[in-house]
Design a protein around this nucleic acid. Structure first.
Lengths: 188, 188
DNA sequence: GGCCACGATGGCAGTGACTGACATCAGCCT
DNA sequence: AGGCTGATGTCAGTCACTGCCATCGTGGCC
């Protein structure tokens, strides 16, 4: 007989997402979340650094995936190609959970604090990608600019994919956004 | 005889920047700031929405300047050209206060919370610029991508300008970063 | 079988950011 | 003179987050 119900972290995650969706992030207290998960506030803060972090737990895994995809891209690939194909490689990871990604995104967009946190996660992603490019021999500021461009592409592509205005898969949206960025930056 | 010393807002701003620089953002309480400005905590929160906002008060003015520069750019200018020249137009505004901009940036970089706030200000800038482009007849997602590219250019250029590794003015750095982004995105 | 160290959780007190309600009072208007 | 206004002060309250110590099944060890 276990002393406690298992998977307290997962219970906290689910309870938080539910409550944020039901009544909004700002109208949810950590005590509410803990109560729904059958735990205490103190335990919440042992699993998550703060009230926002509970939604961004997966960012570290995403970062690892992208960085290793950039590092293992064929040597012949140009920097922007390495980044773009790494982004495309995240397709399967998101494609499976489109619905939960959509709900999560709704919650985030509704709260300024959560949008802030999302931005810093993306910025950290960009700087990790720039680091991976440097390890491929790309100099600064090209590495940073390429990584930032990649994140911009991803943001646009992800939003269009989630919105569902057309039914193509995420990698197709990424390719298309790359093309649009190329068109737009070339503009004279 | 005035009932209070004048310019309480300015006093709070200066006190906050000093204290953040002296002992760090996280080691400064709002009560400390108010005390140094000769006011109370409550008054601080009447002038600034929160402890971070005191450093970002100027963002609204910058946004207005950039938006109106984009809107009044010659009709013949391409989107990326309109954005870039708007960014260049901020040169004088920063050039005068390089030292204080540098100190402020040191403070921001030292604190995760302040970096978060800076990112959301830049994101709001990007979406305002995208709006201005749309008013020029640029369609989505080109407008958003161009605006995001512009912000990436600005971030890189601003950092290089502040670092002082070469002594050119901000607009020159912006031009150069644009060129680098073009090179990098064109990559095949 | 008994002992003990470990690890996840609870309980609790404390700090600090932020808010709402009400009080104060110099200067201005009439 | 008398009343109104706007910036400030005071105070109590909520909530995010932290440090410290207590609890107690579990698993290893003798």
């Amino acid at each position: 007989m276990a002393r406690w119900e298992p998977d307290s972290r997962g219970r906290l995650e689910r309870a938080a997402l539910e409550l944020y969706a039901e009544r909004g992030f700002e109208n949810t207290t950590v005590a509410d979340i803990a109560a729904r998960a059958g735990l205490t506030e103190r335990t919440f803060f042992r699993h998550f650094a703060d009230k926002r972090e509970v939604l961004f737990w997966g960012a570290a895994a995403l970062e690892e995936l992208l960085v290793s995809a950039v590092e293992t891209a064929p040597e012949s690939a140009s920097p922007i190609e390495a980044i773009t194909s790494a982004l495309e490689a995240t397709g399967p990871l998101f494609e499976e959970r489109r619905d939960s990604a959509q709900q999560r995104q709704l919650v985030i967009v509704a709260s300024r604090e959560l949008r802030e946190r999302e931005l810093i996660k993306l910025a950290s992603l960009a700087s990790a990608l720039a680091g991976a490019l440097r390890r491929r021999g790309v100099a600064e500021p090209a590495a940073t600019l390429t990584a930032e461009a990649g994140i911009a592409i991803f943001r646009v592509a992800f939003a269009r994919w989630l919105s569902g205005i057309d039914s193509r898969a995420l990698p197709q949206h990424i390719r298309e956004s790359l093309g649009e960025l190329q068109t737009v930056t070339a503009g004279r």
